[in-house]
């Protein structure tokens, strides 16, 4: 039983620790998402501004590839915010038509490039004509992630240890109490009150039957 108890307490301590670790990690993931959303909201405003301009021009009959004023606009917008790496305008197939970074023009962008915010542009027929993609510097996300991780680690590791230790402590206390009760249970004289009462009633009943018979058998085992 001692071994079983030890294993049990260890398992429970592990569950407590794992559960705290799980909670901390998922809290981290949640905060990370919130941080990303807040960061991206900022770049979405830029994407919106550029997209509206390009849609206006396309309504005037200037097809997206022919909007030669866009590169200037993209460069200007990209310069304003140092966290922006590049702003692309891609056609509906993801082919980059213009970019604040001249090297990027002519590339093909995936549907959901990492570390970017997109806004779809439509023409007056509400058909997609392309996307504005604001690529931001992942460093600002990474810096946020690092700060969040550090802050959470600072709390989580001591908490995790404390939870495990507290579980072990409670387990040991309970085990000691169980052991004590067991030891007492070995001797009917130290049984808990209800058990002693039951035993007394049984003894009385047995005594009544066996005494009448005056048989030598019986008595207390």
């Amino acid at each position: 039983m001692t071994r079983t108890t030890a294993v049990l307490i260890a398992l429970f301590a592990m569950i407590a620790a794992a559960c705290v670790a799980f909670g901390a990690y998922f809290a981290y993931a949640t905060l990370l998402n919130a941080n990303r959303a807040a960061v991206e909201a900022r770049f979405a405003i830029t994407a919106q501004r550029i997209g509206a301009t390009a849609e206006l021009a396309s309504g005037l009959g200037i097809a997206l590839p022919a909007q030669q004023t866009l590169p200037d606009l993209l460069r200007r917008e990209a310069r304003i915010d140092t966290a922006i790496r590049a702003i692309d305008v891609a056609d509906e197939r993801g082919h980059v038509l213009f970019s604040s970074d001249p090297d990027r023009a002519g590339r093909d962008e995936p549907a959901h490039p990492a570390d970017s915010v997109s806004r779809v542009m439509e023409n007056d027929l509400e058909a997609r004509i392309g996307r504005v993609i604001v690529h931001y510097d992942p460093v600002i996300l990474a810096a946020g992630a690092e700060a969040l991780a550090a802050d959470l680690r600072f709390i989580a590791i001591p908490t995790l240890a404390a939870a495990a230790l507290a579980t072990i402590a409670v387990g040991l206390l309970l085990a000691a109490s169980l052991r004590r009760s067991l030891r007492r249970a070995a001797d009917p004289g130290s049984w808990p009150e209800p058990a002693r009462a039951a035993l007394a009633s049984v003894d009385a009943a047995h005594a009544a039957v066996l005494k009448r018979d005056a048989s030598p058998a019986g008595g207390r085992p």
Binding site: A16, V20, A24, A27, L148, I155, A163, L174
Partner: peptide, 27 residues
């Protein structure tokens, strides 16, 4: 121990939430 683990975990997760709040404010 099952009951204890619930109490302990509630307290621990409370701590984590507090830590999360601190981290959120800072970042």
């Amino acid at each position: 121990i099952s009951a204890a683990i619930i109490v302990i975990l509630c307290a621990a997760l409370g701590m984590i939430a507090w830590g999360a709040q601190r981290a959120a404010v800072r970042t």
